[in-house]
């Protein structure tokens, strides 16, 4: 480091110490104005004082920037969660530059201005750091949510002794089908169910890939000794499936979950008796 830069650096450090209150006030104002109307929620949550102290410590002889990094990381993480944009988050840090520039200009000495250039580079680094942390936090939130969605959207429910159902909601892709398949097969083993109903009422569209996944699931269940019924096929979907030329072969398909349940009950030999002695059998023909 050359001598003039060193001198400038010392000058800035002095200025930061002398005008601490003023810089902090300006910084707060600027950051508030920059976070575009979110002054109250933008300003209040930021621990300007702590960050300022940590920044001064990191500039000092110790060069210990870990405190500052920790504070900035916390700040950008919490802002990512609260739904701030990345620019709003980084602007909080960049606001400090403007506040310090005003002080340096008021001081007027060449050292102070030279030092400001150096200082501004450091603040840029920290700004970029908040950016990166922000992006990382956002990605973490997204992947967490995707995982939760995967968990939420694939329940396997027991309809009857020996009959389980999977109501599928939303678009089916390979990853989800894999989860559904594994969960269903696991459930078949755990409950010893011989019948499974896959209800696709909540699936917006069926293309060749989705159909392929469904067929695979049915065949896998069959290999384990359970029969699958596919239900909830809407008229448009039936139309699409036929137009695409997808063959469901000997897989039983039903229009509604109720029909599928009735079919499964019939297959497992359950009979219903309705009312007083008036007997209505669900059973038709044994096959």
């Amino acid at each position: 480091m050359t001598v003039p830069v060193d001198a400038g650096r010392r000058r800035i450090e002095e200025l930061l110490e002398q005008h601490e209150g003023q810089v902090l006030r300006r910084w707060f104002e600027i950051a508030g104005a920059m976070s575009g109307g979110h002054v109250d929620r933008g300003g209040a949550a930021v621990p300007f004082g702590e960050i300022y102290q940590a920044l001064r410590r990191s500039l000092g002889d110790s060069h210990d920037g870990s405190d500052l990094r920790g504070l900035l990381a916390d700040l950008s993480r919490s802002r990512a969660r609260q739904g701030f944009t990345p620019s709003e988050t980084a602007n909080v840090v960049f606001g400090l530059k403007e506040a310090v520039y005003e002080i340096a200009e008021a001081d007027g000495s060449p050292e102070a201005l030279r030092g400001f250039v150096w200082f501004s580079r450091i603040v840029d680094d920290h700004g970029l750091f908040t950016f990166e942390t922000y992006a990382a936090a956002r990605e973490r939130i997204i992947s967490d949510q995707a995982e939760q969605l995967l968990e939420l959207s694939t329940p396997v429910v027991k309809l009857w002794e020996g009959i389980v159902a999977v109501p599928l909601i939303g678009t089916l892709d390979s990853a989800r089908t894999q989860v559904v398949m594994e969960k269903l097969l696991q459930m078949l083993v755990e409950t010893g169910s011989e019948h499974a109903v896959i209800d696709i009422t909540g699936v917006p569209a069926v293309d060749t890939q989705v159909a392929q996944h469904l067929l695979k699931t049915v065949v896998a269940a069959r290999l384990m000794g359970a029969e699958c019924v596919i239900s909830g096929i809407r008229p448009q979907i039936a139309h699409t499936i036929v137009t695409l030329g997808i063959e469901f072969g000997d897989i039983v398909t039903k229009a509604s979950l109720a029909d599928a349940l009735a079919h499964a009950l019939r297959q497992s030999g359950v009979e219903f008796v309705k009312g007083r002695g008036r007997r209505v059998t669900v059973r038709t023909e044994e096959n």
Partner: peptide
């Protein structure tokens, strides 16, 4: 047959035609 085995067989394109299965 375990679920993982069943999935493997399906992925291999084997449906064990003619074999009866039970849980």
């Amino acid at each position: 047959m375990r679920p993982a085995v069943a999935i493997t067989l399906v992925e291999l394109g084997l449906s064990l035609g003619g074999v009866r299965t039970a849980l």
